[in-house]
Amino acid sequence: MVRNWIWVIVSVLAMIFTSPGMSRSGDTRMPSLVVIDALSHLFDAAEFDHDLHLDFAESCSECHHHTTGTDVTDGRCLPCHDGSEALDTVACGKCHVAQPFSAEYLRKRQVEGSFYHIDKPGLKAAYHLNCLQCHMEMGGPEGCQDCHTRNETGEAFYYSGRFMPAGKQSGDGH
């Protein structure tokens, strides 16, 4: 009887600590894996291993700026956000919008006229600028397809793979 209960407890604990929705750190709000499929029209979803990157980043603030309650490292955030509390949601997409150049968003920014956060990149650029910059500094993978492989539409878009142009000469000048 007791042995059965031990097995139940062990299996429940195993489920908790190995479930994909939960981080190695045990913080239920932190994902261990983030699937980014915003470019799914050209690329397969990128699987961002959040746990793995905990080892590389010295502080949550390196990617999350001033939203996680950890010491702010970006000098541009410090004047206002030094010692700020953790926010309820720290996902990139909460602040970085998917369509930063839509007419509505450009108008909205004009009306609101915020003096700060005026040069905030959109979600796609927030990922690429942050990820690629660090990958270059740390020697991480840098190729497009190292993070997201192209699908059929993507191959056609870049005229690569089986859509490669055939029988043409290059470099013949203008």
């Binding site: 878009f157 870049y158 005229y159 690569s160 859509f163 142009p165 043409k168 000469q169 290059s170």
Partner: peptide
Amino acid sequence: EPDLPFDD
């Protein structure tokens, strides 16, 4: 169509 793929 270009002479070379856009990832070249």
